[in-house]
Design a protein around this nucleic acid. Structure first.
Lengths: 338, 338
DNA sequence: ATGAAAGCGCTAACAG
DNA sequence: CTGTTAGCGCTTTCAT
């Protein structure tokens, strides 16, 4: 294995000079920098990660805790994961993956052993046991999702409150007076996962403002559950002319089910979804939707961590992404019959 | 930060003794082991990962390269990922995530810096540029998927050849004489991804043996593409009474499309899928399927790496998982009309 | 069964 | 702008 001393000898400089050339932590004459880089390439030098982390107390690795539990839409998670890895690489960092099932112990382990410099936690609940641990770890961290107590932590999420409101406003503007929200599986609400409950409350607040009558229907992520909700809605609440769907997994099933119940989208029933744009574009018809900007949130998360790690830009507190609604073919003005 | 010397002092032993207690690399009297462990817990000691990797030249981290490209079913990838992380933790290893887009350079980097001890590569193509690099890296590695040249490498995959054959045999046993295979998107075949082409060839070989007439239809992972394939099949090849689906993403769309074309599953058309059991169970009707055993393959991959890392059980060569077909409600004997 | 001590390869003062 | 050197915290011979 070729080491820094080999490079130094080959280039006729001191080891520290090689180190500084590579890290850019002090100014080096263009001449020697060139010579060193040439030697680095000639010998195929790769600094030993462990030695580096020992000497600098920086591993250049981030931990990412991904959710495993039911109720989360897998493609969205995956998009977060890949975006975070890509963003981390831009800052010359790698990503270590932790699954939720190691729980709090995993956080303690990777932080305690200095395996990672910072931690990203996805799918944070309102009263998440990891939150106090993160606080006591005293390492940079960012939570994707908003817990009840954010003091001293960096959190980031889509403003689901505004997203819920935005959906209702859009439908209210189109003249709808009775709107149903079809949401995540019941367990997601029981866990008090922020994104689900915040959407509901934003939705309800907007409904109160606009004097729209609403109801909320949690829904399992299966076709059967989707059909059941539509059947119930059609039978018990035929006056509902629009729905907001906050459950990517059943979006297509719901549309199909409405069609099968003789209610055409958007003529008989309008549909707005909160889901990734890619999904909303590929359904038939295209669904008016509020985007879940996984890529942007992932990039912003990494940026926040890097700011904290370099002490330059220690963004603390909560960052909300403003939701954006895109009109597609699934919403229309309320029909004026009756 | 508490270090090994602190623990040693607290327990009244030498630092090396603490190290040996923790690693179990030499026999320690029950007495001192207890004392040391007590001190470890009392002080909350976590060995520094970098120092450890520097001294032992083992990082206890595995790299996992995940695919990003289109054509792969995301939930299956995710299942692999989480299973690999979980399996690695059983052996006290962590998992570093690499995305495909860093390409060969990512492999060189993590191996060259000794960031990882071993590498798992998913979605390996027949002529994969990473294969020669993996070979020259001289680190334990396992490929999920089978390249053209496996010399000196460990590979593992479902025996898709057998899977394709198994599907056809099952349908032939039920009396079907004309069978279509609806496969992955065209680009997957163009890339010569082994799993897709091997399925097709196993399917065709079995068809030749059983004198069944077959056709193969690549299919994009969209509802529209699924509808188009079904329409084409119904119009151009009405004599086809059974299909094999090797594309998880469109399985449900295909079934729906057949129903909409007035062909009931399984009475008018039998459907066999190659997909995870979880998916096959939740469709309506349940689909007879050959399982993609992500969890088993993931666990086996990790086990292979561990064998190589400990030099105990250096499993080389190719491991094929034998496919298993589970009958559900989507297949029936061919109707005897005409 | 345990201790002492020599590195592992790199970074970051300190010195010039 | 560059060189010298003292660790970083752990593992692992080599001793006993």
């Amino acid at each position: 294995m070729v080491k820094i001393d080999d490079v130094a000898r080959h280039a006729g400089v001191a080891p520290s000079t090689v180190s500084y050339v590579l890290s850019g932590k002090r100014t080096i004459s263009e001449q020697t920098r060139e010579r060193v880089m040439r030697s680095v390439r000639a010998l195929g030098y790769h600094p030993h990660a462990g030695a580096r982390s020992l000497a600098s107390s920086r591993s250049n690795v981030l931990a990412l805790v991904i959710p495993l539990r039911s109720g989360m839409h897998v493609p969205v998670i995956m998009q977060f994961v890949t975006s975070i890895v890509t963003a981390a690489r831009e800052y010359d960092h790698d990503v270590l993956l932790l699954t939720q099932d190691e729980g709090v112990a995993g956080l303690r382990r990777v932080a305690g052993t200095s395996l990672v410099d910072a931690i990203i936690v996805m799918d944070v609940e309102l009263f998440d046991p990891r939150v106090p641990v993160l606080r006591e770890l005293r390492r940079p961290s960012v939570l994707i999702g908003i817990p009840a107590e954010t003091e001293g932590l960096s959190c980031i999420d889509l403003d689901f409150n505004a997203a819920g409101a935005l959906c209702l406003e859009h439908l209210a503007d189109l003249g709808h007076r009775r709107v149903a929200l079809i949401g995540s599986p019941p367990e997601v609400y029981k866990r008090e996962t922020g994104f689900a409950t915040r959407t509901v409350s934003g939705f309800k607040q907007a409904a109160a403002r606009r004097r729209v009558t609403v109801s909320v229907h949690p829904c399992e992520s299966t076709q059967l559950a989707a059909m059941a909700v539509v059947a119930q809605l059609t039978r018990m609440q035929p006056e509902v002319t629009a729905v907001v769907v906050h459950n990517e997994a059943v979006l297509e099933f719901l549309i199909k089910a409405f069609e099968n119940n003789g209610r055409h989208v958007p003529d008989d029933i309008s549909v707005v979804a909160i889901c990734p744009d890619e999904l909303a574009e590929t359904t038939n018809p295209g669904v008016t939707s509020v985007n879940i900007p996984a890529k942007q949130i992932a990039e912003q998360s990494v940026k926040i961590l890097m700011g904290q790690l370099t002490h330059e830009n220690p963004i603390r507190g909560t960052t909300f992404h403003t939701p954006r609604l895109t009109e597609r073919e699934s919403t229309a003005a309320k029909a004026d019959k009756k």
